[in-house]
Computed example of a mutant assay.
Amino acid sequence: MQSQGLSINLATIREQCGFAQAVDICLQHGITAIAPWREQVAAIGLNEAANIVHSNELRLTGLCRGGFFPAASFDDRQKALDDNRRAIDEAATLGADCLVLVVGGLPGGSRNLDEARKMVADGISAVLPHARQANVPLAIEPLHPMYAADRSCVNTLGQALDICELVGEGAGVAVDAYHVWWDPDLAQQVARAGQMNAILAHHICDWLVPTAHMLTDRGMMGDGVIDLPGLRRMIEAAGFHGAQEVEIFSDNWWARPAQEVIATCVGRYQACC
């Protein structure tokens, strides 16, 4: 099957269609692995989304997202923990391979990245017992340093793995090509992740040159400068042989018909990954 080994993160066509239609389009292209976002699930209802997943025997390579642990006040940090526990329950209901964590950036008014990273580790530690009980691994996704202030103060695979070692069983990493391709220590850290059995997900897209917008101008595979086959070889050598999950935030691709986008994902996956 031409789509074997390919997963679609539903953010890739989030502007064109909702959960049910996105699943239908993926199935039409032979894709049986997806990764939805919580707001997409909420829009159709958790029970209905679970029915669609289970009746079509879909694999969820992840649920996006938990995280955003740092906050200026104790009450806001507690609210984040409560929301993460809800996200864990949603991932368990859907049968997701993992809950992806975008951990959050600096609390309002702060310039202290070390303190923010401590809040992240403390937050993950606090929700890990719930995740273990639900059998939902937590996948820390390091984000490119351009997001350090607002989206993620964990910016390298090495930093994410340090947290995994600190908090213990039940935490791993999501390796997103867009966020880690630049890292001079990438090969070493992927190998380390393999030794820890910590790779839970592998996300792909491409880095365009120039990049017009740091959030909504990701490239389709093959349109940019990332050595996607090289990264895949690295990850497989580390022992991860799961699906490659296409996750593209792009005003360009969101403006195109969803059928065209998914067909292009399949073709580029075969040609470039």
Rank of each mutant, 00 (worst) to 15 (best):
D76N: 14
T156D: 06
Q16S: 13
V225D: 06
A271L: 09
A271T: 10
D176P: 01
L143D: 02
Q189R: 11
P107F: 02
V103P: 07
N47C: 14
W207L: 10
A116N: 04
L161H: 08
V209Q: 14
Q16F: 07
Y147A: 05
M214P: 12
A193L: 07
L200R: 02
W254G: 02
F19G: 01
T216A: 09
V175H: 02
C98S: 11
C153S: 08
C205D: 09
V266H: 03
I199A: 01
T93S: 15
N84P: 07
L60T: 04
L99C: 10
V103D: 00
Q159K: 04
L46E: 11
A116W: 00
R14D: 12
F74S: 15
D176N: 09
E141N: 05
G168Q: 10
S7I: 05
Q159W: 06
L27N: 06
R85S: 05
W37F: 14
F240I: 02
A212P: 08
I52R: 08
G168T: 07
L10Y: 06
A80H: 08
M221D: 03
L94P: 03
D82Q: 10
R14E: 13
I226G: 01
L138V: 08
G62V: 02
R132S: 04
C153M: 06
C98Y: 01
V246P: 01
G170C: 12
P107Q: 06
H241E: 06
D76W: 11
Y178M: 15
R232H: 11
A191M: 13
Q2T: 14
V102L: 08
V53P: 00
D251K: 14
A43I: 12
